[in-house]
Design a protein around this nucleic acid. Structure first.
Lengths: 268, 268
DNA sequence: CGCGGAGTTGAACGCATTCAAGTCTTGTGG
DNA sequence: CCACAAGACTTGAATGCGTTCAACTCCGCG
């Protein structure tokens, strides 16, 4: 894989070095894209899966008055439009937020993996399931949590996802979003996002400045956002590290032992 | 496939009659389950995928004060826990809402399809992507729409999904949820759900009574909810039918022609 | 007959939106 | 080098949507 294309770091639990070699043969040349640039339009036919080598992007839908709801934030190392691999087009728009580097993987090449490397093929299914879990959790976040908690929860997610890729340490992470963007991600107005951010700041939990979130109290932030990260399906070592840093039993603590039920039958 | 197990009706665009024959060999005996019964517990290891032959179920997460947020409603004909197929456990709970009939498909048998019937294997990926799209849209619904619109939008989705399976006609559909459930699905209190429902009623859009939603003005309901159903990825004939019934260009109207761009490269 | 769950309605409160004004920073052109 | 414009951020005040608390009805069921 050419310099800079670091799939192995992005999904350490899913792609081993052999996989990465194999994938290196499949992608086209990386492309630089400006900030605030639409990558994919809802409903438009696409033939390549985009791997976000660097930079941030967002998936969103617009309401009928043109206001935007972010569905998920995509961080460096994400495949950002895998659904298109199986259905050929997307039900939402995708745009960069910061300047970005995108690596196109032609669908055809990925499809061929089913024959040539079925294990690897399955990994893409796993990636898209992880994606789905992130969407689900977004519904929980905006549906159930109050303003301050929504932002704290959102920050905690972005932290955990970047931390899992070694893109940041426990003290902070990159988040090149405006307060308006954060509002659109968390389902609130920019003004209110501002007020909630200043609450988090004055409570000594975190500060956002210059596209960087500095974390002053990670357990406090996670608590404020009722954050539990089991839905990220992180590999065990990283999961343990997060548990150590955050404290709460929000991870796999709840995963049950091997004696669990195996079907609906058992729960009659 | 034994009487009652009607996969073909559930996914007419994904499973043909040969597929259904093939799947018939894989499932265990259907199981009756009471209403309000938890089928799967978050984090618990599962070995069977559950096909919801009949009845309604919900996927949900709880906040730290124990209040529930529905992530999606599962209707008859849904595979309700496919994520567990690839990762072995779930990040959320699933419970029945009405009495239900569940058909367990052992994971192993489905995995074997990769070798024996790769096309069919892929269809399960497609099903789970459709699922993901429904979750995404839920985030849009609760994040961007106001109370009345959230409920109208939710009703429109449940209608469209049941209509696509011929479980209902254009005049109404089954929805055995209490108003409290609807509140949990749409991110609001039961009291407010009640008020929004009575608005929809008094505006002549729809009524909910006895577990049945009667639709009085389908285009009006869809408009009130800003509903667009492209995200359901429905097969063309059904999509056209919905467009005829609802009117608005909310479906594939936006799907672009074959001349579309093929990668990030083209949009610099 | 009485209980409990679901639905309905009123009234007070409070969180979030809206409108608006003003600061600060950045980049651009004179 | 300064002037100016544009965008991001901040803050105040008024409004209103949704929550909360509470009371009451209706219905099915023991």
């Amino acid at each position: 894989m050419p310099p800079g294309v670091t799939l192995d770091r992005a999904y350490p639990d899913l792609f081993d070095s052999t996989d990465c070699q194999c994938l290196a043969a499949l992608h086209k040349a990386p492309v630089s894209v400006d900030a605030r640039h639409r990558l994919t339009r809802r409903g438009e036919r696409v033939h390549d899966a985009i791997y976000l080598q660097d930079g941030f992007a967002g998936r969103y839908r617009l309401d009928w008055s043109g206001r935007r709801q972010f569905l998920s934030l995509q961080i460096p190392g994400d495949f950002i439009d895998l659904p298109s691999l199986m259905v050929g087009y997307l039900d939402h728009d995708i745009a960069t937020i910061s300047p970005a580097i995108c690596v196109p993987f032609p669908h055809q090449g990925l499809h061929d993996l089913r024959e040539t490397r079925p294990q690897l093929y399955d990994q893409f299914w796993r990636v898209s399931l992880r994606d789905a879990a992130i969407h689900r959790y977004a519904a929980f976040r905006v549906g159930r949590l109050a303003g301050r908690a929504r932002i704290a929860n959102f920050f905690a997610e972005v932290f955990a996802r970047q931390f899992a890729r070694r893109l940041c340490d426990k003290d902070g992470f990159a988040l090149p979003l405006t307060q308006a963007d954060i509002g659109e991600a968390c389902g609130m107005t920019p003004v209110h996002a501002n007020r909630m951010l200043s609450e988090l700041r004055s409570e000594g939990l975190c500060t956002l400045e210059g596209g960087v979130v500095t974390i002053h109290d990670l357990p406090g932030l996670a608590r404020a956002g009722q954050f539990e990260w089991d839905y990220l399906y992180l590999p065990d070592p990283i999961d343990a590290e997060l548990t150590r840093l955050i404290g709460q039993a929000g991870a796999k603590a709840r995963r049950r032992g091997p004696r669990a039920r195996t079907s609906a039958a058992a729960c009659r």
